[in-house]
Write a protein that binds this DNA or RNA. Structure first.
Lengths: 208, 208
DNA sequence: AAAAAAGAGAACATAAAGAAAACTTATTAA
DNA sequence: TTAATAAGTTTTCTTTATGTTCTCTTTTTT
């Protein structure tokens, strides 16, 4: 069996624990950046050694396949990601803008419950002080009741949907924004239909 | 076994995560728009490669069938994840608490870039006013430089890691919290090592 | 001290990628 | 039935990304 040098083993270990942190199989240049190496040529030598050891797929054939571990080198990891339906955007005071095309979105298990959930994108600043910003995605557990203090998707007068804290008494339902410039609004119980409860939130900082 | 180029894999990944976001299987032109490509002919070559690889249904001559993944490709979707390494918690003023047993976490494509990324869990309130709360997860693009105004994972004096806004001049590096009760701290450039840049954020509201 | 390993950097070759336009054929509308 | 349109196919050209090779230097190991 081929024996690896210390650096080769280091690079192999890096590949094994980070191969799925790349969106696609990395090129030598991309690997250089990730490994903080300055020279593609130097890395090339190591990759050739790993190919010779049968741990990395050879580059023969397609020139731009990227650096991929062989099946032999991969320990199989079961992926259990759940895909949730993406239902559109929710803006305070407007109905949920339904999408003509059904979309979906991968959501980490940590951000959902084991009940049926769906995803909405937030428009507006009514919940900024709760750390929910314009453009954020929220994961909603589909549910027609809520506990006081929960953040809910509420349908008001059967037409406008909104994301707010809820405080309910037998006499009235209070929808409370998290924004000092906005007031809480009180409704009769019959005016409000709860469509779900917030269980997760996500934000992207990508500029492109 | 057919080997895909990196671009082919990228386009395949796009199809896999977005094929149900189209009302009907997309035409080449529709895919061009979605992929931000200008030339149908260029895309055509990639699709032909995916057909040859058995991942996309061959075009039969009917012009409105669109680009459809094969059963084989759909099956592959279940196996392929969007997992990123979970590197532990980051608390202002403490080194990143590394985990002995490697964990990972499913992250939506929307919350990452196509560069290597990893996940940290935030401890502390130094970024509350930026909507990043105690317990939130952040997605970090691994990178050793940053632009002013970005939120970075910075290693101070080679020992403590922190998540802050960064403002750099040739003379000093300013790490700015998003919390009125905390002050910005200035360092000499040599004291600061950038370990990554914030590209995504997630929060769970589950009580359990 | 010698040998091996690792790294930097430059130069090279070329498959791959992209743009643009023309062509062909199926589908829809008139 | 015919015309118009939409959608796939082919071609040509240009640019770029990326593997590859080389030489030299530095570091580590023996």
């Amino acid at each position: 069996m081929v024996v690896l040098t210390r650096r080769q083993r280091e690079i192999f270990n890096f590949l094994r624990s980070n191969h799925n942190s790349f969106a696609r199989p990395p090129s030598l240049d991309e690997l250089c950046i990730a490994l903080e190496m300055a020279s593609r040529g130097s890395l090339y030598k190591h990759i050739m050694a790993l190919i010779a050891a049968g741990l990395v797929e050879p580059f023969t054939g397609n020139k731009r396949a990227g650096v991929r571990l062989t099946a032999k080198a991969l320990k199989q990891e079961l992926k259990t990601g759940h895909r949730l339906p993406f239902m559109g955007t929710i803006a305070a005071g407007k109905p949920i803008e339904a999408l003509e095309n059904r979309r979906s979105m991968i959501v980490p298990d940590e951000l959902r419950t084991d009940k049926p959930c769906y995803v909405l994108q937030v428009r507006g600043d009514s919940m900024v002080e709760a750390g929910i910003f314009d453009g954020d995605w929220v994961v909603i557990e589909q549910r027609s009741y809520a506990n006081n203090g929960e953040i809910v998707v509420a349908l008001v007068d059967n037409c406008e949907a909104t994301l707010k804290f809820i405080e309910q008494t037998p006499e009235q339902v209070l929808l409370v924004p998290a924004n000092a410039t906005m007031a809480a609004l009180a409704y009769r119980p019959g005016q409000i239909e709860i469509q779900g409860v917030l269980v997760g939130q996500m934000r992207s900082y990508r500029s492109h």
